[in-house]
Structure formats: structure tokens, C-alpha cells
Nucleic acid binder design. Structure first.
Lengths: 139, 139
DNA sequence: TTTAATGCAAATCGTTTGCATATCT
DNA sequence: AGATATGCAAACGATTTGCATTAAA
């Protein structure tokens, strides 16, 4: 998704598409690695030297409130962002730090005893050692 | 679980059971509401006025490393602690803030495409409006 | 010309650390 | 004594806020 498509996407979701918002959304959409605000800021600063870290934080929070990004937190407590808002599994490798997506075949609509609760969001986060790091070890 | 049982439990898990550790573990075990370090500190300070917040943080981290507590993070990013280390679902009510436990009937061992990954921990966090808050609304 | 968004720096808040004191063996 | 744990205050790092400036409607 390029910046112009991102603008369109934002407008379609009722979000005033400024240059910063569009470039941030475009970046997040393309990067599938669930970056933190700090990573987004440092990458985009190269293209947009005037960009402020506060704008990144505020923009992500704004996107989040408008339901176009997910906020992910793992055990380290740092917020990661994901442009894919559908329910899916995240696997966080505790060795390399990579976050993998798995679009799940699990049905979360039939949990014992949860009747009467309105579930808006489902986060399924796994932690362990990824395939890659396991292979590195056996080399 | 009282303080003396907590001591025993800690020793059984290879943890040097000091007074602070035992009282903190006992508190956490009894409270089923997944408190933050701050809440633990403020509650226990009443009983143990000399208690330090750093001790609470360090102790929880130590328990966590020794696998007798789980660390839970929700969208707000604050760490919550849980003495139940088994995989179970947490439901965080975004209205009243309550965190509910659901011991799940779901089988997480058969996820599409995750073969070759070593999964150590599974966090399943739901967010929405709890039964109680829903009832309040319709009054 | 009014409203909304940005950028910067300072403030805030949760958490960690350094170090002196206390506790336990 | 020697090792480990605690308490306090300072440091730290992620995030938020206040406010002046800029861009957009």
C-alpha cells in the first residue's frame, strides 16, 4: 500500500488523512513485523526528517481508537502495532524477538462459561523459540 | 493459602522463602484479580509498613523467572500478575477493569502452520464488556 | 479565520538499578 | 564473616501532555 492508497484508506475510515498519517499507515501496512513506535519513528525519520516521535505515538493511538490498528503487548510491556485488525495468533520468539502471524483455524466463539460477556477483541499470543532460531542452534 | 503455606510452597520450588516473599505470594494466590505491582504494594503496606515497592517489583520478577507467576499485559501495557501459571483465558472488561478467568476447553496444540515452533507460553486475552457491566446498563 | 494536526520539550508513570542497611547461615 | 534480600532514592525508558507553530478547511 503506497501513501496515496493509504490516504484513501484513511478517508474511507473517517480519518482526516494528513501526510504524516498516510505515510505512517502506509509504512505499518507494508511492514508485517509489528513495529514499536520507536522503530516506526526511526525508520520514517529518514524519509520525513521533521517527523516527531510524539506524532507517531499520537497517530498510533488515534488509529487504535478508530479501530484500524491493533495494539499488541508481550511480556516486555512495549506496545507493538499491527495494521491487521482481524483476530490472529502472534508468536513472539524470545530469542530473536521476531513476531510471527498465524491465521488461526481455532473457533473462539464457544468458550465454556463465557456466556453473557461481550467480546470485542481477542488476543492470542504465544511465546517460545521460532523455527529459525531452533535451526540455528542445531548448526 | 496462608503465609506459612506460601513459605512451604516457595521452598518446594527452590525459592528462599523470606517473610516478604511469603506474604507477597500468599496475597497473590488469594487475590484472584490479577493485581499490578502497585496494587500489591499498596495493599500489603498496610500489613507490612516497611515494605518497599522495589521489593514487590523485584519479587514478582523473581517469581516470574522461576515460573510460579504469569505476567499478563493488556492494551494499557501495565503488568498484571497471576499465581495460576496454567494456560487459561483472561477477559478484561474495558468498563470496570475486572479481569476474569476462564479455563478453556480449546485445544491450542493444533494450529495451522505453526509446526516447528516451540511454544512455551500461551496467552489468550479477550477484551469487552463483562456480564455485570451489561446488566448495570439495562437497569 | 477557525479548526485540527504537528513538533518540540517537559512531564508523567511504570519499572529498574545502585547502594547502604539489614537479615540469615 | 559471607551471602543474599530489603528499602530507599535516583535513574531509566516508554508514553503522554502543554503549548506554540503550522497546515488544512
Amino acid at each position: 500500500m503506497n501513501v496515496s492508497n493509504a490516504s484513501k484508506y484513511l478517508e474511507d475510515h473517517g480519518i482526516n488523512a494528513t501526510y504524516q498519517r498516510a505515510i505512517i499507515y502506509s509504512y505499518l501496512y507494508k511492514k508485517k513485523n509489528h513495529p514499536t513506535a520507536d522503530i516506526i519513528f526511526n525508520d520514517l525519520k529518514k524519509k520525513v526528517p521533521t517527523l516527531s516521535k510524539a506524532t507517531v505515538y499520537n497517530t498510533m493511538e488515534y488509529f487504535h481508537k478508530n479501530n484500524i490498528v491493533q495494539v499488541l503487548t508481550f511480556e516486555d510491556g512495549v506496545r507493538h502495532y499491527d495494521a491487521d485488525t482481524k483476530t490472529h495468533i502472534h508468536f513472539n520468539c524470545k530469542q530473536c524477538g521476531m513476531i510471527y502471524d498465524f491465521h488461526t483455524n481455532i473457533d473462539f466463539n464457544n468458550i465454556n462459561g463465557i456466556d453473557g460477556f461481550d467480546i470485542d477483541k481477542r488476543f492470542i499470543n504465544f511465546e517460545g523459540i521460532c523455527k529459525n532460531c531452533k535451526m540455528e542452534k542445531t548448526k
